[in-house]
Design a protein around this nucleic acid. Structure first.
Length: 210
DNA sequence: ACATTAAGTGATT
DNA sequence: AATCACTTAATGT
């Protein structure tokens, strides 16, 4: 765990804090599609993502979903941390987008560290701010971009997050993530293929240009 | 060989 | 851009 921690966090955190993380955190291995947090659940631990990717999804009462953003290595959901302090319930769902590793840290400790470590405070503020940026980007995408642009953005975002130009997903899954219908996704993907930007296979999309 | 699931398509709103 | 109503293609049993 120490080595894994050091890989990503030794530059950000001071040694004493790393030691504390090691002491109080639990290393968790997440498999693809594992649920981290669900809508309405309250959070008692906050994950520090070592590697992999987490998809953050908003869901309404009708079960309609929309992907807000992805978390990557070194990220944490500071939103969920602040949520903990408020004792409010999660408004989003977090699902592992691929096999990932994270360290779970009890909220109690996070609070202590806020007072104790400057680097931790900075990390949390920085994280909160970048989550907000991503949220605004998501709003822009939703409000101003047409479906074809949104789809292409989704694909290139996903390529970056997965660090792989071959995406193993179905048209149906994309439709759910973008909150549209499968037929629309299929047609737009076909257009992108004709433009030479992607190559389509069953359960698989090769992104050539992103 | 048959059933199931993913993807493609024309027509309509 | 959504929905319907198929068709076709790929895969699993």
């Amino acid at each position: 765990m120490r080595t894994k921690l050091q890989d990503y966090f030794s530059i950000v955190f001071e040694p004493e804090l790393l030691t504390e993380i090691e002491k109080f955190g639990t290393l968790v291995t997440l498999k693809k599609d594992d649920l981290l947090i669900d809508v309405g659940s309250k959070i008692t631990q906050v994950p520090l993502l070592l590697n992999g990717a987490i998809k953050i999804v908003r869901e309404d009462k009708n079960g309609d979903e929309i992907v807000l953003y992805f978390l990557e290595r070194g990220d944490t959901c500071a939103i969920s941390f602040v949520n903990c302090l408020n004792k409010s319930k999660s408004k989003v769902r977090g699902v592992a987008e691929k096999d990932s590793e994270a360290i779970y840290i009890p909220v109690k400790k996070l609070e202590e560290w806020m007072a104790k470590y400057k680097t931790w405070r900075e990390f949390v503020i920085e994280s909160y701010s970048s989550r907000l940026d991503e949220m605004i980007e998501a709003i822009d995408t939703l409000a101003f971009m047409k479906m074809d642009e949104r789809l292409f953005k989704y694909l290139s975002d996903k390529v970056k997050i997965m660090r792989d130009t071959t995406l193993n997903t179905t048209h149906q899954q994309i439709a759910i993530d973008l909150n549209t219908s499968r037929v629309v996704v299929s047609r737009l993907l076909k257009q992108l293929e004709n433009l030479g930007k992607i190559k389509l296979h069953r359960n698989k999309i090769e992104v050539l240009d992103f």
